[in-house]
Design a binder for these strands. Sequence first.
DNA 1: TAGTGGTCTAGACCACTCT
DNA 2: GAGTGGTCTAGACCACTAG
Lengths: 238, 238
Amino acid sequence: MRNKYSAIYHDLADKIIHHIYPVGSYLPSETQLAQLYGTSRETIRKALSALLTNGFIQKIRGKGSVVLNLQRFNFPVSGITSFKELNQSQHMNSSTKVLCIEDQYVPLEKFDYQSDSDLAATYVERLRIVNDEPIVLDRDYILKDCVSKIPYEVAADSLYAYFEGKLGLKISYATKTITVEHPTKEETQLLALEPHQDVVVVRSQTYLEDTTLFQFTESIHRPDKFNFVDFARRQKIN
Amino acid sequence: MRNKYSAIYHDLADKIIHHIYPVGSYLPSETQLAQLYGTSRETIRKALSALLTNGFIQKIRGKGSVVLNLQRFNFPVSGITSFKELNQSQHMNSSTKVLCIEDQYVPLEKFDYQSDSDLAATYVERLRIVNDEPIVLDRDYILKDCVSKIPYEVAADSLYAYFEGKLGLKISYATKTITVEHPTKEETQLLALEPHQDVVVVRSQTYLEDTTLFQFTESIHRPDKFNFVDFARRQKIN
DNA sequence: TAGTGGTCTAGACCACTCT
DNA sequence: GAGTGGTCTAGACCACTAG
């Protein structure tokens, strides 16, 4: 909350969530907001820009900023979010079972990644359980160059909270692919799949703020439980 | 190209694509770029901000802007893009077969959409064929309120080009969900699926710049050909 | 015509990185 | 200490929407 514009962003987002600015209504104009918050118009515009990309509002030239009806998108599913964060924001009755922590090299061919040398990593395999049903099998490869050792308790809780909170790593961006594949026998058993049922595989590479490659992740989802929600803007930069 | 910052964005993006600014190198500093382009620093920052969100660069405080290695992401798969645009940017050997154009009401329950009244629409069903294989079955419901009639030739070419180019509609944002489902018999046949093979279903609702709901779309993908690629930034607004 | 958002400017101070 | 990006300001002009 140290920046003015992020403070304003949160204030406006709160007021939208609590319907102080109802869906379909217009926010005060940018000049009015600038007066309200005692700041310049460009700073207001930064806050509004963040609200725009997060789907809270739509700006209409000559008219104003309309509040959108997107309660469903209060949680950022399409971005980078950890299971723990998702769990908390959705109040799911879920748990995590750590199946394995050990040193392994990253299976580069799986991730279609070109590298001259092997990448040493800590391999963490975890099963996500929601309402007593196994839903997702997560396989993380955290590169030794960035994190040398991972305590068991951390894997059972949240890797991201540990990396960002304790280690001060700044996770910045990721590439992600979603495909449908035939499961291995192990996956079939762990996820309690029916025979010949396929799985949804989400593979991602995560990078730090300084562009260091940091982590490979493979998430195996039960197809009947998989649901990816996205909010996208059509940005044609003319 | 009328804005300064979008002109600068395109110039820089071109130079990155053609390796005039090679991967891993630093762009000139913001003040240098401001001098180079004869503009103010804030304008440069807008251009760099667009490069950032599109995955061209990573900004590092105190150091500069690094060029990223994301050739794969030159096309915006995670945003809103039409099949025609994708086809052109990827030079695929593909075609479209129009199966049906007729008036229908939107099947609201399919899209989990609440509405008091029925929504009249033009229903367009099209099969996308790549290398002689059926890959995707697209079902579009274009609301009559926005577009009253759709010529056959348009459906065979590109709906988006028609809406934006001819009709001047401004497509702005969309919500999207991805799930895995059992296909109907019709879908099994059209997509030449094996028995018991599931399909990937992408359902979206598209909105115009003035927040008018405009279109519902259902895309049925062959699971073995489905590949969703995404670039995401972790944005924690503190 | 008045009000709105979109763009742009020329400054300023700060926190950070590197040498 | 010099250079970098991050934030912020107080103006300005424009294109668009409305009554």
